[in-house]
């Protein structure tokens, strides 16, 4: 008989091994390599490609905020980080991260799961940025919201990569039984994607609002006072984002967008608190759709 505690320790060990050399996503890797191997790459393109890869974005923030740079304030803007680290450093980091991914062969299941995951991350980021703008956050601070959206589910990457078949079953089960994915993750692996996200945040020395988002976007009550408003916008964006990791179903919402919004207490409270009209969300939803299509197009260019 399998000892559950021993089994969980094995899961943890596998995850920790994976975290040592965490590669770029399969979805973004080709584009990262194309952009970074081009000697004439512009800073704008580099920023764009880093902004679309949660692992790379996290590693850039790690480098700028790590022990090498004794900065008074945490840098959470990729634009700032690129200027301070310089194009070469970012390119080298991106190449080494992407190459890690090209070494290991991936199954179609893993690639497919990663594509779905990637879309959800970008979508959450776009929602978070838009909601921030609509709720009184200055334009220059909005990038941090996008980055937090991009990184909020970073803890899922090791699960998708290391246990892809089991993980897809968990996602299907969550949708079928209307349970949250993180609850089933906890039951199966002994830890959920917020806890794994916490391991990554610690390893990457992420701090403040982004780390809080990674660790508490499903448990808002555990968020500290200072970052509560920030994480709340991310938790709402997470639900509004229609990723196929079934976040809508996860939160007990069905298909119809407007109907669903009104059924979700978190979103309802948020709308009332910020005096936001449903029509505003509808508009954001349309622009989000365009941004996702553009992001997909940007990624596909290199694959041609």
């Amino acid at each position: 008989m399998v000892n559950p505690q021993k089994q969980n320790e094995e899961y943890l060990h596998t995850i920790q091994e994976y975290l040592i050399k965490m590669p770029s996503l399969s979805t973004t890797m080709t584009k990262v390599l194309a952009v970074c191997n081009n000697p004439n790459t512009s800073a704008n393109d580099l920023n764009k490609v880093v902004s679309m890869d949660p692992v790379l974005a996290g590693k850039v923030l790690k480098l700028i905020n790590s022990a090498y740079y004794c900065l008074r304030n945490q840098v959470n803007s990729l634009t700032q980080a690129i200027i301070m680290l310089g194009l070469n450093t970012i390119k080298n980091l991106a190449l080494s991260t992407a190459v890690l991914g090209s070494i290991s062969k991936k199954t179609a299941l893993q690639n497919n799961a990663m594509d779905i995951f990637w879309t959800h991350c970008i979508e959450t980021g776009v929602w978070a940025k838009a909601l921030a703008l609509e709720t009184g956050i200055t334009k220059s601070e909005c990038e941090e919201y996008f980055v937090a959206g991009l990184l909020h589910d970073i803890g899922k990457i090791p699960l998708i990569h290391c246990f892809s078949a089991d993980y897809m079953k968990i996602v299907a089960m969550a949708a079928e039984k209307k349970h949250s994915v993180h609850t089933i993750e906890k039951a199966v692996f002994g830890l959920d994607h917020e806890e794994i996200g916490n391991l990554i945040a610690q390893k990457w020395k992420l701090d403040g609002a982004i780390a809080q988002t990674i660790c508490t976007h499903h448990h808002l009550s555990q968020t500290d006072d200072e970052t509560h408003g920030f994480v709340e916008r991310l938790a709402v964006s997470n639900i509004l984002s229609k990723g196929t990791i079934n976040d809508l179903e996860e939160e007990g919402i069905e298909d119809n967008f407007v109907k669903n919004i009104l059924q979700n207490s978190l979103i309802k409270t948020f709308l009332e608190k910020h005096n936001l009209a449903l029509s505003t969300l509808k508009t954001i939803q349309e622009s989000t759709h365009t941004e996702i299509e553009n992001a997909k197009l940007f990624m596909q260019i290199s694959k041609g």
Binding site: A43, N47, S77, T79, Q80, S140, E143
Partner: peptide, 23 residues
């Protein structure tokens, strides 16, 4: 500021350009 500051450049992004200048 290594980001494009030319609005005619297809990759121009105002927020990026402003943030780059400030940094």
């Amino acid at each position: 500021n290594i980001f494009s500051i030319d609005p005619k450049d297809p990759s121009y992004d105002k927020t990026m350009a402003d943030e780059g200048e400030k940094t």
